Amino acid sequence: MSKSHPVDENAEILSLYWDNDRLYFLDQTLLPVDVVREEQTSIEQVWDSIKKLKVRGAPAIGVAGAYGLYIGARSHAGLSIEEFMGKLQEMAVYLNSSRPTAVNLSWGLKRMTSVAESSASTGSSTAQVIERLKEEAEAIHQQDQELCRAIGETGRPLIKDGMGVQTHCNAGGLATSALGTATAPMYLAHRQGVSFKVYVDETRPLLQGARLTSWELLRAGVDVTLICDNMAASLMASGKVDLIIVGTDRVAANGDVANKIGTYGLAILAKHFGIPFYVACPSSTVDLNTATGDAIPIEERNSEEVTSFGGRQTGPEDVNVWNPAFDVTPAEHVTGIISEKGILRAPYSEKLINLFRGL
């Protein structure tokens, strides 16, 4: 049975914790009021936590999915290696169904199943394959932390004294296992004494910017101002924004990027006002098998997220609702992609292939 634990207000805040062979998620649905860590004891619970956004953000759910597959694998230790491998594939497909847009989830699960297949092919027992899965999940976790720092170091020079930096949704530490993607350059610049302001869009309908990004930046001592989504144009027109950095859940082979709904509009505004618009992500978010943004599956969520606000009904019960969780920003609106391997600039197709396939 899972247990929830309040987190000490002085403790380091992480989206997920791996301690003594146990997995915990910070329940982000309760933020910013309650800071609670919930133990994950089954693959079904991990699936549900990802689906309900208790853990969210492309890199974080990639790590969460890897640990979730290991947790599921543990419960089938008594199977023969042949039966186990078949069950492992079923569990990977099941976990991947929790959220279809973020490619990091499928990337992490494929990496896990590939490791298991390689181990099994050398004659390993079921127990040995399960142990190998644990090691790989831990490696994915560690590498995500390293990638976030590298992204921060890549993007840090973009932030200068006196700048106003805008971001959307949450591509912070809560969306990864460390410093975040879009916020990583901000955190490093802040630690190095650069004086700048961050403007955070609230990000309707689930307010990830308001509930999560502004909370974690404020907690870190960053100068942060929260705005409603429909204030972005006025903010840019006022001259207060010099740079925009957002995250992404998937980058297509041509440089189109899928990110939280509202990102496309922000990019169009940035182009109108001549403001550089950057996207930050690890290489695992690049999907070279998806040619353009048109082929990226867009998750649609339930209508209640739009017809209610703060637990109160704000729309008619029978009104039609369209609630895509993401939109796709065409590559032509992206100034650059900040990765752990450098900043890419248009045209993207060949550069993405060369950089992320290592050619």
Rank of each mutant, 00 (worst) to 15 (best):
W215T: 03
E216M: 11
E216G: 08
L217S: 06
L217I: 00
L217W: 06
L217N: 02
R219Y: 14
R219L: 10
A220L: 09
G221P: 06
V222P: 06
T225E: 14
I227M: 07
I227C: 11
I227W: 14
I227E: 07
D229E: 03
N230M: 09
N230F: 08
M231Q: 13
M231D: 07
A232M: 12
A232E: 01
S234R: 12
L235R: 03
M236I: 03
A237F: 10
S238W: 12
K240G: 00
K240A: 15
K240C: 01
V241Y: 05
V241I: 13
L243P: 02
I245N: 07
V246E: 06
V246Y: 09
G247I: 04
T248L: 12
D249I: 02
D249Y: 00
R250P: 04
R250Y: 12
V251G: 00
A252K: 03
A253W: 08
A253C: 08
N254L: 08
G255S: 11
G255R: 04
G255W: 11
D256H: 11
V257K: 00
A258G: 06
N259C: 09
K260M: 11
K260Y: 13
I261K: 03
G262M: 09
T263N: 10
Y264Q: 13
Y264S: 09
G265W: 10
L266P: 01
A267S: 15
A267H: 10
A267W: 13
I268Q: 12
I268H: 06
K271D: 12
K271R: 15
K271F: 04
F273P: 15
F273H: 14
G274V: 12
I275E: 06
P276R: 10
F277R: 00
F277I: 00
F277S: 00
F277M: 07
F277P: 00
F277L: 02
Y278F: 15
Y278V: 03
V279A: 11
A280K: 04
A280M: 09
A280W: 07
C281F: 01
P282E: 02
S283T: 04
S283P: 05
T285C: 03
T285Y: 02
T285E: 07
T285A: 02
D287V: 01
D287P: 02
D287S: 04
D287F: 02
